[in-house]
Design a protein around this nucleic acid. Structure first.
Lengths: 155, 155
DNA sequence: TATTGTTATACTCTATAACTATA
DNA sequence: TATAGTTATAGAGTATAACAATA
């Protein structure tokens, strides 16, 4: 057959999975010169945009489980991009902030990823790019709510 | 901040990852009554649509590494949905075919996933749904070619 | 008691090398 | 010598339970 996956091509999950695989691979290659991966990049951007954020809040924003955030922050802290500071008002919590170097890395990485995004949407005009983002958010909002999903143990 | 991830929201990778996470979780829930997961569903559909396909070809179509396909096919074979038959002309190869039961499961699962897709794109009209698929394929084609990607060892 | 960050752990997914049987 | 399927294995990514420090 010429298109052996024609049936699957009509499904959103199939196209989404393949498009995401392509993007993730590419973005990781783009971020490698900055010593970043897709996750560490996302975490760094959130920390730069939201100074003194705490780990629990960061985990909620990025839908990462708290335990899994620990190694990611260790990586960024060892690289000198972010610091964990004991919160003065609650000595259990850590306030996360980017170092000057972390902010510079973040700015440059943001630019590189923006350029990459433009390349990945090459062939789509501005309206089509916006429509793509809009559609992806509609899909997200049509999913079961976080509360609903919590009731179903795995996957 | 009201939208702490506003910067990331402009990136395709971010929206794609979150949209795919929602879809995958939902689709797996939809497929559970059929004893299928997203991967086993995809494999079953390809086998139903392409009788006597060989494992290497199947792996290429779905971008799965050959070794990782083995357990997936074991799962489907133990469930009685597909069979591996020695190729008469090449006794190294396996020809994959769906059993009658496998075809019935496939048909019913296809319908369920089609319904689910309609729910996930609720709020988008027909043109917008088509535009979404088109855009996702443009993104895929803008990624580095498979040959290029092979030159870069890991993600 | 409850919460923050952490450790330990387990399960899935993915990727590579090397084996076997056939060609 | 090469190929098809397989095994073993290692690395990510992700999820849960339980602990120490603090509230």
């Amino acid at each position: 057959m010429d298109k052996p996956d024609a049936s699957l091509r009509s499904f959103l999950g199939y196209d989404l999975k393949r498009a995401f695989a392509v993007i993730q691979s590419d973005v990781n290659a783009v971020l490698q010169p900055f010593g970043l991966r897709m996750v560490t990049f996302s975490v760094l951007v959130i920390i730069c945009d939201n100074p003194r954020l705490r780990q629990t809040q960061l985990a909620e924003i990025l839908l990462i489980e708290r335990p899994n955030l620990v190694a990611i922050l260790d990586e960024l802290e060892h690289a000198g991009a972010v610091v964990r500071v004991r919160a003065p008002d609650d000595r259990r919590a850590h306030e996360l902030s980017a170092t000057l170097q972390g902010q510079q890395t973040c700015d440059r990485a943001l630019e590189a990823v923006r350029d990459h995004d433009a390349r990945m949407t090459n062939g789509l005009d501005k309206n089509q790019r916006e429509a793509l983002h809009t559609a992806l958010r509609v899909v997200q909002s049509n999913g079961r709510s976080v509360d609903d999903r919590r009731k179903i143990p795995r996957s």
